[in-house]
Design a protein around this nucleic acid. Sequence first.
DNA 1: TTGTATGCGTTATCAT
DNA 2: ATGATAACGCATACAA
Lengths: 334, 334
Amino acid sequence: MKKENSAPTMKDVAREAGVALGTVSKVVNGLPVGDSYKARVEEAIKKLNYQVNSYAQGLKANKTYTVALLIPNTRDPFFGLLAFHINLALLKRKYRMLLLCTDSDSAQEQEYITMAQQNKVDGIIGLTYNPNLIIEENTPFVSIDRSLGSKIPCVACDNFAGGQLAAEKLSDLGCKKVAFLRVGSSLNNEPNKRKAGFENGCLSRSLEYEMKIINDGESFEQFVDFLKEHMKDGRLEFDGIFCVTDGLAHFTYNQLLALGLRVPEDVQLIGFDGTRYFGTSEYICSTIVQPVPEMAEMCVELLLQESMTTKPPLVCLPVTYAYGGTTLEPKFEE
Amino acid sequence: MKKENSAPTMKDVAREAGVALGTVSKVVNGLPVGDSYKARVEEAIKKLNYQVNSYAQGLKANKTYTVALLIPNTRDPFFGLLAFHINLALLKRKYRMLLLCTDSDSAQEQEYITMAQQNKVDGIIGLTYNPNLIIEENTPFVSIDRSLGSKIPCVACDNFAGGQLAAEKLSDLGCKKVAFLRVGSSLNNEPNKRKAGFENGCLSRSLEYEMKIINDGESFEQFVDFLKEHMKDGRLEFDGIFCVTDGLAHFTYNQLLALGLRVPEDVQLIGFDGTRYFGTSEYICSTIVQPVPEMAEMCVELLLQESMTTKPPLVCLPVTYAYGGTTLEPKFEE
DNA sequence: TTGTATGCGTTATCAT
DNA sequence: ATGATAACGCATACAA
């Protein structure tokens, strides 16, 4: 009577059923076993309410069916959506997910990677910002939105095409002079390509444009100043603005209203990400939508695909444009 | 040469350092060891890049430092915020969190509880809807927003006080006749108390009120019909509306505008939850704010508090009112 | 087909 | 203080 209240083990089941330990293991794992034995074992399992200990299983198999997700938080709508779909994709495959919110702390990112490896996870999916991340070779890793070297696959939406699409849409909707507002990351990550795509789109449409780029951590007030500088006689020089994220678009929307401008009549506004009210309602603004479910599936697929000898270093998934009230209605298009 | 690429084990470290297995264990766990031995072991650990296998640890200790969180999703802002703070609270205590999004599927809820127990988690925190959930006694459980029996602590905000506060605020802000809009859950959960609190508040202030309650899954169109029925000569009979969630408040806001009404000038609107744009910006509407960080801390505290012999069956945390543009500004108050 | 024995990586109890 | 050894719960190769 070593442990009164502890959960029953295979040994307990074997004793209860009057069979050997190995037999129980076989029944549990669906290996061929005599019918009468099988029945007795199953009865004992039910009686004792036995459940296999997956920690012990993992110890044997050196496989844990667990994947860690490193992400800044689940409070930002984009991150929350991403975490949700990655969770579903993993659970669908009978994998468990360890959530590690880094709270945008680079030191935490490194620490949690170590923690994940101690947990002997089968792989790690990470949306990280630490520029000096050290990834051990022995744990499969998939990065989101940022390349971590050619050996580690990176999954992102097609940010360049998204920027381009934004420019083309603004042009299609009748804009003559547009602006690009961006909070720049010093990191060399995929979302940075939105700028190049936008410029490319403007050039191909001969659309006049200007850009205002501030650094991460700097005050958004600079955008307000920028807008004010381009006001003349109560009118803004721009009739279209592309913001690098929906969050910035929302901020800009409020500023434009405060300046007495109408959106979309005076200025049209396009954001990026595809953020919706309450996760599922309307879009908060007209936006370039990231294919989050597909990105999640791709991350999981790439991570668990053992057979792939050479994994693609960068996968870009297609984006779409969605109307969200801050551009002229589709029916107004030519 | 059994496993070429596998992670190094304690045995490998012992061999490398030329000491016994037990000595390595002591060094790792900070138990007294001779200085020269300690140095050698630490050097070997660094050289081999050794990391303890917490699965094996858990097997021995029958403790895994892992907690499972059952939640419908992380896409809804409230759930995303809650998951984030629970994750932080657990990580702060060196606990790991298994995320199990149920996608509002009752069958999944039960299945994931079983899965969590197989994983030998040290406890489960659950925000669930399955009316017939079976919780094994042997795993500590804390429920959010719904009582699961006197043996299982339930953590929630003070929903009754929140409803009451909403009524009082509307009264303070000058409302004469108000309405309560609610999507009812057939479940006997805590948020249902918002209704009773609101009624109580209206009565204590002698505030005239009416209620429109639809069942979960029914169309929101019924609310639109309700509003239209109470329109007379382009004016609404109500000058204040309390919605059971911010999501419903947002929907109602749009409907009111479509009916040609001004918010907050013609009708003031208060929601519930404290939802913010992008998780951290302004409130989406005037709202009763749930103390999410405190609720998260309380859940974790109650779950891990071994010493408590008798845990409280229900803990209600205080709510606050926040201005969010759909009520008259505070300065307008008397 | 069924039972037995060994090992997975760690901790803890022993002697030494 | 240090080293050997048993045990945690399970899977499996092997013996019966």
